[in-house]
Design a protein around this nucleic acid. Structure first.
Lengths: 144, 144
DNA sequence: TCATCTCGTAACAGATGTGGTTACGATAAC
DNA sequence: GTTATCGTAACCACATCTGTTACGAGATGA
């Protein structure tokens, strides 16, 4: 299984917050967000909870409570969202230690490390080029 | 769970083939490769089987059989290996259809698609810059 | 022909990650 | 105090990946 749809879901949730805010609903409930994503409100609260811990959204409790974005959509990039989700790099080293008796096993990890670091850099740089406002604008334009 | 150590393992296996070839062992068995990676020979045969289907390695059966690289290490890039493994993009769309009654749900996927496509492009481009020969050279240099 | 070696591959178990669900306490508005 | 909603634990279901056993297929050489 891959964890690779989490960024999509998070951006979807944030876009729902943005849409509702523009329609004069400052706060949105996990139930309302869940309805658009077609998932369970607990799933929404879990993921928005991660985003709140990273400072991207705010939550409020009690009646009339819910969630809202903590910043303007122009100030949040997809890289920020990916970070907030604790996303792991696309490529990782061995899960189990390889055999140190073999020179390949000893040297392969330090050899691949800088390669993977560069890959991670370009991914983050590319994600940083797009903001939630960009995504929201395109989303609305393509909704019909 | 993430499938993200597969490229590492594959490059490790190919490097073992390269090392043994340079030591005048043209063919290597899955048992020998498994010893360096510290895994099961069947795991090696499965993964090298994928690489063979992509034309990166060759296999032979019977006594004295095994595996060898099908090309020079300078001619195979990490992007080729990743392709051969059938690697999936780092980011994917929703697993379940979102609610078409919501404009965000309707527009979010076409809006994110080009973003993810660009991410995939830069990842592939970065991986294409490194060949197996590059990795092998660095691996040997860092083995001690 | 036969013994032997190794690949090729099916089948299954275990670990792990993600998402969905239920449940219930905490909090805040009225 | 009633009500709405978050916060979070607990559990299940499901998919993927890895490791393992098992055994047939193919090739070599005596």
């Amino acid at each position: 299984m891959s964890a690779n749809s989490r960024l999509t879901i998070a951006v979807h949730m944030l876009s729902v917050l943005e849409l509702r805010r523009r329609r004069d609903h400052e706060w949105s409930t996990s139930e309302q967000v869940a309805h658009s994503v077609r998932t369970n409100p607990v799933v929404v609260r879990r993921m928005l909870g991660d985003l709140r811990d990273a400072g991207l959204v705010e939550s409020r409790r009690g009646p009339g409570a819910g969630w809202r974005m903590a910043h303007d959509a122009t100030e949040i990039s997809l890289a920020d969202v990916d970070d907030a989700l604790g996303a792991e790099p696309a490529y990782a080293m061995h899960r189990n230690e390889p055999n140190p008796a073999c020179p390949v096993a000893r040297g392969i990890r330090p050899a691949l490390e800088p390669v993977y670091a560069r890959v991670d850099d370009v991914v983050r740089a590319e994600l940083a080029r797009t903001t939630l406002a960009d995504v929201f604008r395109t989303t609305m334009a393509l909704a019909d």
